[in-house]
Design a protein around this nucleic acid. Structure first.
Lengths: 203, 203
DNA sequence: AGCATATACGAACGATCGTGCTACCTTCGA
DNA sequence: TCGAAGGTAGCACGATCGTTCGTATATGCT
């Protein structure tokens, strides 16, 4: 498949814009994005940036998609390289906390921030953020289910319940550390996750 | 103490504006507040609303203060009416989840939303939100400490750790229910909190 | 070589933002 | 009764927002 040099140029610019856009959005929110600011910071024309996406909403949706790819690359993909079962479940928690702590996005987890921003609204941006959030929640749950099916977790373990608790602990660590600084929240979350999992594994 | 009819009038208007402001901010964020919109919706003049607060930042700070008062009235105060110890700790969790579920603020917990919005920023609004968040986290912790001191919790219980976990579960319930609707998240959180507390109380 | 396509720019639009300034009205204190 | 003080409205400002339009430039296709 031959490449069109024109759209290749456009895609390159789009990628530059989106990389900056997700960083801004992780700190200031998807509403904090502005065509003019993006153009100024990247030394492009505002109308040029606008033309790349067609509307502000499309830019926001593209930012969510870009953030999804970065999230998958940093959290989901490395987790899937680990053998199924309790080992993968532990890896998932570790990878996720590391992704948050490494500040892959300067404002902490992209989906925590934009999720809180758009949770109570309606429209396409809400739906995109909600779908991404739901997808990760289901990924946690399916990982728990697999670990249980592999015989690593007690029969009595409720997958949905355990997944909810792990998800809650990770989000709280991200929130507290971004808000107050320091790494104590991650220590607390790791301890809680370890204890919770140790109680769930078969003896 | 005699009342000045002039400032009384101003305070009344201020209260009306702030009540609407916290509702808007719980959905659209403190950045989503605008003097013009507030004035239009409440059928006041934009300059009149502006004059009541002096600047947009002061309006945001006043909104945080108002939300703090509402939060205290709905969560902290009823909790303090319960006898110290494990009973109060359980009441705290219940009151907090109820406050979120009852949608005292239409967008769910005010401080969850504005906390995520301002966590990675700097300035007076960030500080105000951070102080309110820290205050509640410390209230949870002190309630745990008191329950432990009362002999209701095992000696081995780490107050900071337990408080972090309870706080995490509550926030996750708020987030999930606002994002996806339904009450399942509250059910999961209540079950997790009950299990966690039952494991911590002295046998 | 020539037409079509896609990126990118510059200028301008209407709307809304936060913020001043001025005037009016009500209430307080002397 | 009269000046001072505080709340409210009207109007205008500069800035920024998203968006539109026309145009220049670079690449692809015939």
């Amino acid at each position: 498949m031959p490449v069109d040099g024109r759209v290749a140029r456009g895609d390159a610019t789009r990628r530059i814009v989106l990389r900056r856009a997700v960083d801004i959005a992780s700190v200031e929110g998807l509403d904090g994005l502005s065509l003019g600011r993006l153009a100024t910071e990247l030394e492009l024309s505002k109308s040029g940036v606008f033309a790349l996406f067609g509307s502000k909403e499309e830019l926001q949706l593209a930012a969510v998609e870009t953030a999804s790819a970065i999230f998958t690359e940093n959290v989901v993909a490395p987790t899937l390289e680990v053998e199924q079962g309790i080992t993968r479940l532990r890896a998932l928690c570790a990878n996720w906390l590391d992704y948050s702590e490494r500040r892959v996005f300067p404002g902490g987890c992209f989906f925590f921030n934009t999720g809180a921003e758009y949770d109570a609204r309606t429209g396409r941006v809400h739906d995109a953020v909600a779908n991404a959030s739901r997808g990760f929640a289901e990924f946690i749950r399916s990982t728990v289910v697999a670990a249980r099916k592999a015989g690593h977790l007690r029969e009595s373990v409720d997958a949905k319940q355990l997944a909810f608790e792990l998800h809650a602990l990770g989000r709280a660590a991200n929130a507290d550390s971004v808000m107050f600084g320091g790494t104590e929240a991650y220590t607390l979350a790791r301890a809680a996750i370890t204890a919770r999992l140790d109680a769930a594994v078969v003896p």
